[in-house]
């Protein structure tokens, strides 16, 4: 059985369906978030976090590289922390996270809500939430 299945093309295996694509997207976006968080962590260490920040502050920056997360530390010059580059990294992390999260909400709704109508309502609320959180979050990051 297994050898037979492996010979099928992606399309024949049903890999092109929306659900399968979202399944693989969830895994790949998780890896992308790991990469972005690690990148922000290394960036913080390069920009002087080793002597001027404690672990909690570094993690706060790593999970969301926004300048307001380093304002309460001993960093003397915030200019390198608020460049357009870091804002774009933060917005990328935000968008990947909301896309990953909204699919998680849809999956949970599909599992626990029995009625078709209820599922559709929760899906709609999840998508509206994702869109508004992405826009509001991107605005905060860009203007901070």
């Amino acid at each position: 059985m297994t050898t037979k299945t492996r010979k099928l093309s992606l399309k024949q295996r049903g890999m092109m369906s929306f659900e399968t694509q979202m399944w693989i997207f969830t895994r790949l976006s998780a890896l992308a978030m790991y990469a972005l968080i690690l990148f922000a962590l290394i960036g913080a260490l390069v920009m002087g976090a080793r002597y001027q920040m404690n672990l909690a502050d570094v993690m706060r920056w790593a999970f969301m590289p926004n300048v307001s997360h380093v304002q309460s530390t001993n960093i003397p010059d915030l200019a390198p922390w608020m460049t357009i580059f870091w804002k774009l990294v933060a917005i990328a992390l935000l968008l990947v996270a909301t896309a990953h999260g909204v699919h998680g909400l849809v999956v949970i709704a599909d599992d626990y809500i029995a009625s078709e109508r209820g599922r559709k309502i929760v899906r709609f609320i999840s998508m509206v939430m994702m869109a508004s959180m992405s826009l509001m979050g991107a605005y905060i990051i860009w203007t901070s």
Binding site: A97, G101, G104, L105, I108, M129, M133, M136, I140
Partner: peptide
Amino acid sequence: LGMGIFITMHI
């Protein structure tokens, strides 16, 4: 779900 609640509140 907990993270979704926290991030929504924070934003």
